[in-house]
Nucleic acid binder design. Structure first.
Length: 471
RNA sequence: GCUUCCUUAGCUCAGCCGGUUAGAGCAUCUGACUGUUAAUCAGAGGGUCCCUGGUUCGAGCCCAGGAGGGAGCGCCA
């Protein structure tokens, strides 16, 4: 092939290639350069995998002076022979014949290599340079795993007969009951049009009414399930809560399957198989990245992931959980009483101390759960389920839905949910209602669990949280 | 929103009881070195000690207020 038609090969493909002694072209970012006046070694990373490719530049072709611009962080194109490496750290390397600097990076590049004192840039500092952190090993690994999990989610549902439905991001309802919402408006903030009594006149707004960013696609997902049978949503979700924790974001991605004719047990079966399949997919497809995270941050990560894929989740009712907590020897900061919601410390005790495995809690008191959950026969509890994971807490929240129109209307009245805003939702119970169930999985919480990262702001490229919308 | 801790070189951190010119490792720069593996060796440059005010003969250190960040809690996914 003529030299100028040579196409670039990804480093991932070169590193596993057995077709040696051929000319290749690589385009990538420089991690380090070292050597002497006779030979120089350049470690290259193009993001296709964690590992770097070693480029050898011999002095005959590349006097040391000519490599001055090849600094940590610069981007170069290398043409050369792919050969077996003489060194011990790698199987193959490139003997360079031509190096072109595509982009320089001077000494102010923030991601200079860390030294042999093993101390690198902290995750906290990397959050302040989130535009560059994908170039680190850690964020490369996290972002590749995030991608793999997103892909596995679509594959799982496709393989199981689910249809992907796109629910709206702008919603005209603020009655979904999942938290504070962000307003969406085109009205001028300084001088909005007013009605005769002085209130802001939203009839003048873009949609002719107040609108918000969605807090959940569930209600629309239910509409689709009542036609397509098994559906799921996977999209961005927004909560304007002033939550300052390592497990909350103002903008996050949520997966919400909804299945006609499923009851609570079917729902639990789906959640458990779904989660196990996703973890299994990551173990099979992200081995190198997971090994790196295991070695770097959390020595028990792989062990924990394998454990989850091979052990059944512990299922018990809220009432049973309260009994266990009441008889526990541990002293809790918050008392446990039937009817109050469990605190983080209680959930952590059940998952990490008592059962030492993922837990699915069901049949919560109706007072502490949403209006749309199906009432149990005793009239006190609802068919809710929360999946609790070690280190994460609630990773899934779901329920069998109330399919009976009258019971649903009664619950809405009790919880002051206005019927007129959800007339379309109630129509599903008026026309051909059916038992159905579903749940919401926080995507970033899943990525948090699989990567072993401890702060949710480190598993999404550009996190949105109170007082921060940089980048 | 609440509790608590932190903020010193580009990064990661020391800094004694409040006392002379604020230190280390890494990074960067310069030089040496014939295949390195987060190369090695030698040298050099690099500081608004987060900001404002106060106490004191004297403040990186003590006090007050503010800003930013971490961890935990609440809300939840």
């Amino acid at each position: 092939m003529p030299a100028d038609q040579l196409r670039r090969t990804r480093i991932q493909d070169l590193l596993k290639s057995t077709d040696l002694n051929r000319e290749v072209l690589v385009k990538a970012w420089v991690r380090t350069r070292r050597g002497n006046k006779y030979v120089q070694f350049i470690a290259l990373n193009d993001g296709s995998c964690l590992a770097t490719l070693q480029v050898v530049a011999a002095a005959e072709g590349f006097p040391e002076e000519s490599l001055k611009e090849i600094t940590t962080g610069s981007c170069i194109a290398v043409r050369g022979q792919l050969v077996a490496s003489q060194g011990k750290g790698q199987a193959v390397e490139i003997q360079a014949t031509e190096i072109t600097v595509l982009g320089t990076a001077d000494e102010t590049y923030p991601l200079q290599k860390k030294g042999n004192d093993q101390k690198g840039i902290s995750l906290e500092h990397l959050r302040e340079i989130a535009h560059l952190r994908p170039r680190t090993n850690t964020f490369g690994a996290v972002l590749r795993i995030r991608h793999a999990l997103a892909f596995a989610i679509h594959q799982y549902f496709n393989d199981h007969g689910f249809y992907y439905v796109h629910t709206p991001i702008i919603t005209g309802s603020d009655a979904e009951g999942a938290g504070q919402m962000f307003r969406v408006t085109t009205l001028p903030p300084e001088h909005p049009p007013r009605t005769a009594d002085g209130a802001v006149d939203y009839a003048e707004d873009f949609f002719g009414k107040q609108t918000n960013l969605t807090v959940s696609g569930q209600l629309e997902g239910e509409l689709a399930a009542m036609a397509l049978g098994s559906v799921y949503t996977f999209g961005p979700t927004f909560r304007a809560e002033n939550s300052n924790t390592a497990r909350h974001l103002a903008e996050f991605w949520m997966i919400e399957p909804e299945v006609a004719f499923n009851d609570l047990t079917d729902n639990m079966d789906l959640a458990e198989d779904f989660l196990q399949s996703l973890v299994r997919y990551a173990l099979a497809h992200c081995a190198e990245d997971l090994q790196f995270l295991n070695d770097t941050y959390d020595k028990e990560l792989l062990e924990r992931l394998n454990f989850v894929t091979t052990n059944e989740f512990q299922r018990l009712t809220y009432t049973e959980a309260v009994e266990i907590l009441k008889s526990a020897k541990k002293k809790f900061e918050f008392p446990v009483d039937w009817g109050t919601d469990l605190q983080s410390e209680h959930e952590r005790y059940l998952v990490e101390k008592h059962f030492k495995k993922p837990v699915i809690l069901t049949n919560y008191p109706k007072e502490i759960k949403a209006f749309y959950m199906k009432l149990d026969d005793d009239g006190r509890t609802v068919r809710a389920m929360d999946v609790l994971f070690p280190g994460i807490g609630e990773i899934i929240g779901g329920s069998q839905r109330e399919e009976d129109l009258v019971k649903l209307q009664t619950r809405m009245a009790e919880m002051h949910v206005p019927e007129d805003e959800l007339w379309w939702y109630l129509d599903t119970r008026r026309f051909g209602t059916a038992p159905h169930a579903g749940f919401g999985l926080g995507f970033e919480r899943l990525v948090l669990f699989v990567t072993g990262m401890t702060n949710i702001r480190d598993v999404i490229p550009f996190p949105r949280f109170p007082k921060n919308a940089e980048f």
